[in-house]
Design a protein around this nucleic acid. Structure first.
Length: 708
DNA sequence: GTGCCTCGAGTTCA
DNA sequence: CTCGAGGCAC
């Protein structure tokens, strides 16, 4: 067996670093043994040796509970993770990229970087340009040169552990030489056109299912629970970036990627360095020209700022880095007939038109529905009244050109007026809710028409319940959108509180639930257990789950942190009205404005709504929110910058401070904790002195937050 | 008032 | 993933 087997250093003598290394090795050794046992029917180690590995893993975890890995073997049962793959937290987030479709947007991207860094327009900036592979991204963790973990992107923060499958891909080395002790390589798994065609032919021959396109084939192959199947699939890999590192790879993007190639990873041969905007656009055009002959799918070109120190200074927006951009190729389109326009009613009452289409293949996927957004979109206008599609409106029976925005969401790009059936009438947008008949009103300046039925509208009621059980809200296992709809239809659940009384009303002996289609004793018991588990709910989730208009996940987090407990939150929302101290406190939260405040107080002032909330709360045990215990010295502090900053721009300083958990304000007030004053600071510095607020200079700030 | 940037709410298909 | 709108800095 491998190093770190049961015969290593006694557990009592391990230090933390050794323990961490060994847990990683044990996880992959056990993983490998599991896969061999369960999927290849050919155990590679004896049962006794396997048990010893598990026992040692448990002993180390007991001594160092903090080091317990998210993919810990102790969480697995019989080698197969319940519910598919184990979740793994990425040591550094896997990013997505901002998109551009026009040259002008690329120019704006470059100009924006100059602005952010405070560089003059003529200052040279170099970028890398490389094809954007249409596959799935993968993060490979190497410790001491050995592949210990492979994870999919997931939501960027948490992905799925696909280590056993990644090991079967020949482009991915198991070991690398002369590498940093920790190296996370990031890249794209994809499938060649030839391999895709051969795979589909083979699948068809065996009567198996064929894949719609190489991307789906690659995704389906990588996410096989049985890695023997993955092994039989011709997957390939290009490395283009990195995550956590024990030491920097290089000073530039280009050289860093060359180093990855040096470690033995395939890197894209078309990647090159561009010294100017013109060179970037030329590179884009050149790659597009070669697109059809590459042998694999690409959907654009990725630009990255070459200088890694500058990348660091630019930092991140909420989900995308400021230093990279995906410049997409024009989307594939297809013509089809629009059979009908239907209206869906959302949780807030929004009436959304949907196009029912004659099925048509766009970009390798059969599309039968497309969003039509709103009234104006159908009429051929944007929100400002300017014409779109040359002002052509959309009518039932029209021939329409479909594309998939971002290669995902089907949309109507154009209408063929020449083929419009005679007698086709302009679409009359309904002025009453198709579900409940209440008037549907469009507020001045709003682009959507909303059903005014509120709680009496069945569509809104169901959508609100779906929202309530959604992932960022109560997230009850076994109670998804479909189940909620079925329960609602039978009158078992009509409002959130009903979920928590379901067992007492229908669960006795489980008879009634068992009689429902698709429910057995086991699944019913599981559902009730999952519901019980969620009686205790973090305040943030609860606030989000209420589904108050304008209050999403982020706002719910802000509110939970501000008020801490449900009682404090509820009291404040009940008492807040313009002019009151509670109202001021609410508006004082950075990110809450009048619209949101009005929406919140209105919800708590509405009797029916309020009764619904009260019935729900009676069923729950709300977990108070804790102030984020950031370890930065400025976390939670309000900072003001004034005067001239010499080593960073204003935007940069602000982004940095916020990344460390500080709130950046524009003017000094009693709420200010720290003033950073550069040369030329005037009235703000004076005011800070009067208020006795701590004031430091730019160097003091850099020292405080650790370097530049 | 204008111009970011971020968030909310809507959307499809496998 | 995208659009529109809310919130905030300038």
């Amino acid at each position: 067996m491998k190093a770190g087997g049961p015969d290593g250093i006694p557990v009592e003598e391990l230090d933390e670093a050794q323990a961490r290394d060994e847990l990683a090795r044990l996880a992959s050794a056990i993983d490998e043994a599991d896969r061999a046992y369960h999927t290849e029917d050919a155990p590679r180690i004896s049962d006794a040796a396997y048990d010893a590995l598990k026992a040692r893993n448990a002993a180390i975890e007991a001594r160092f509970p903090d080091l317990k890995r998210p993919d810990s073997p102790s969480k697995r049962i019989g080698g197969v993770v319940a519910e598919g793959f184990a979740k793994v937290a990425h040591a550094r987030r896997m990013l997505s990229l901002a998109n551009a479709f026009e040259a002008g947007e690329v120019a704006e991207f470059v100009a924006g970087i100059r602005r952010f860094l405070g560089l003059p327009a003529e200052a040279a900036l170099a970028f890398t340009a490389e094809p954007k592979i249409d596959g799935l991204s993968l993060s490979l963790r190497y410790e001491a040169g050995r592949l210990v973990q492979a994870a999919t992107r997931g939501d960027g923060a948490v992905g799925e552990n696909v280590t056993a499958n990644a090991r079967t891909i020949s482009d991915i080395p198991d070991r690398i030489e002369n590498a940093p002790t920790l190296l996370e390589v990031r890249g794209e798994v994809y499938m060649h056109h030839d391999d895709f065609a051969a795979l589909n032919a083979r699948q068809a021959e065996r009567g198996g299912r064929t894949f719609a396109n190489p991307r789906n084939a690659a995704a389906g192959s990588l996410r096989q629970l049985d890695s023997a199947i993955t092994r039989s699939r011709p997957l390939r890999f290009f490395a283009y970036g990195w995550g956590a590192l024990s030491e920097p790879l290089a000073a530039t993007q280009m050289v860093a990627v060359e180093r990855l190639a040096g470690f033995g990873f395939p890197t894209n041969p078309l990647m090159q360095r561009c010294e100017s905007l013109e060179a970037m656009l030329a590179c884009w055009a050149a790659i597009e020209q070669r697109r059809a002959t590459l042998g694999y799918d690409i959907d654009g070109v990725v630009y990255k700022l070459d200088d890694l120190a500058l990348q660091e200074r630019l930092g991140m927006r909420s989900t995308t880095p400021r230093w990279a951009l995906a410049h997409k190729f024009p989307a594939e389109t297809a013509w089809t007939r629009l059979e009908a326009i239907d209206i869906q009613v959302g949780r807030t009452g929004a009436l959304s038109p949907v196009a029912r289409l004659g099925p048509v293949t766009v970009g390798g996927v059969v599309v039968a529905n497309a969003t039509l957004h709103n009234e104006d979109y159908i009429a051929g206008r944007d929100s400002r009244g300017a014409p779109i599609r040359d002002g052509k409106d959309i009518r039932a029976g029209d021939w329409v050109k479909i594309y998939r925005a971002g290669d995902v969401i089907p949309k109507v790009a154009d209408v063929d007026l020449g083929r419009r059936p005679s007698g086709a009438e302009p679409y009359a947008f309904p002025e009453a809710c198709p579900e409940c008949g209440s008037p549907a009103i469009r507020e001045p300046g709003d682009s959507v028409r909303r059903c005014t039925g509120g709680l009496i509208c069945p569509a809104q009621a169901v959508e609100r319940l779906k929202h309530f059980v959604s992932r960022a809200a109560f997230d009850i296992e076994g109670l998804g959108a479909k189940q909620v709809e079925a329960f609602w239809h039978d009158g078992w659940i009509t409002e959130p509180a009903d979920i928590f009384t379901l067992q007492s009303r229908y669960g006795s002996g489980l008879q009634q639930l068992k009689n429902r289609e698709g429910w057995g004793e086991k699944s019913a018991a599981n559902l009730f257990a999952a519901i019980e588990e969620r009686r205790r709910i973090p305040l943030q989730r609860l606030i989000f789950a209420l589904g108050i208009r304008h209050v999403g996940e982020a706002a719910a987090g802000l509110l939970a942190r501000q008020y801490g407990t449900w009682d404090a939150f509820e009291a404040a929302m009940t008492r807040a009205e313009p002019g009151s101290a509670e109202w001021e406190e609410l508006l004082g939260i950075n990110g809450v404005g009048e619209v949101m405040a009005t929406s919140l107080t209105a919800a708590f002032a509405n009797d029916a709504e309020r009764a619904l909330i009260d019935r729900l709360i009676a069923q729950l045990d709300v977990e108070p929110a804790v102030q984020a215990a950031g370890d930065s010295p400025v976390a939670g502090k309000t900072v003001v910058f004034t005067g001239t900053l010499e080593k960073m721009t204003r935007a940069e300083a602000k982004a940095r401070a916020e990344a460390l958990g500080a709130r950046v304000a524009g003017s000094v007030s009693a709420k200010t904790d720290l003033l950073v004053a550069g040369p030329g600071a005037g009235s703000k510095a004076k005011k800070a002195a009067e208020l006795g607020i701590e004031t430091i200079d730019e160097d003091g700030w850099l020292e405080l937050v650790g370097g530049g």
